[in-house]
Structure formats: structure tokens, C-alpha cells
Amino acid sequence: MEINREDIKKSANIAKIYLTQDEISKYMIDLKDMTEEFLDTLKELNISLDTDFDFNTTSLKYTNLRQDIPDNFNNIETIYKNAPKIKNNLFVVPGILRENKK
């Protein structure tokens, strides 16, 4: 599997993590090692690499569902206190409209 700097940059982009050039180089090698080791494992165990796997085979006869009854969460104040930036109980982020306009 070919893994290059762009793959790492794209992943960092999607995962929203700022990376330095050094980190990109280091992670690229680690990621390559990891995927190769995994591909070797598949080969040794004679398992095909594809998305064809049925997650749906658990033989469950039941389904754990909750009754539609509102409960009272009694700790909203702590949620507010945990917030880095909050005004009139609204969470504040940088203007998004402005970013769209750019």
C-alpha cells in the first residue's frame, strides 16, 4: 500500500489536527509500517481485503430500547461551567458565515 505525505496531510485535514512537517514525516513511516504489518497478517491468514463483512450476523433476538419518557438532567450548570466560551447560555464559536463568504 502506497502511503505518501499527501495521505497524512489529508488525514490531518479531515481529523482537524495541526501537524508540523516533522510530524508528517514521522507519522508517514509509522502508518506505512502498521498497514503493511496488517496486510501481511491478512495474507498469512488467507483473508481477503475487502469491505465484504456482515456486521449483521449477531444472533440477537431482542432489542434494547428505551421508553419515550423525558427525564430530568439535573446538572446543566456544570455543562455551562465546562464551556470555554459561553454567552447567555449559548456556546460561542468564530463567525461561520464569514468563512462561507470567503
Binding site: D7, I8, A15, Y27, D30, L31
Partner: peptide
């Protein structure tokens, strides 16, 4: 942590 998040992101693409 960053390493694992990055790898996981890459794998799930």
C-alpha cells in the same frame, strides 16, 4: 493520541 487519530482517520477513508 494524535498518531492514532491520524491512522484511524486514514483507515476509515
Amino acid at each position: 493520541v494524535k498518531r492514532r487519530i491520524l491512522f484511524g482517520t486514514y483507515i476509515l477513508m
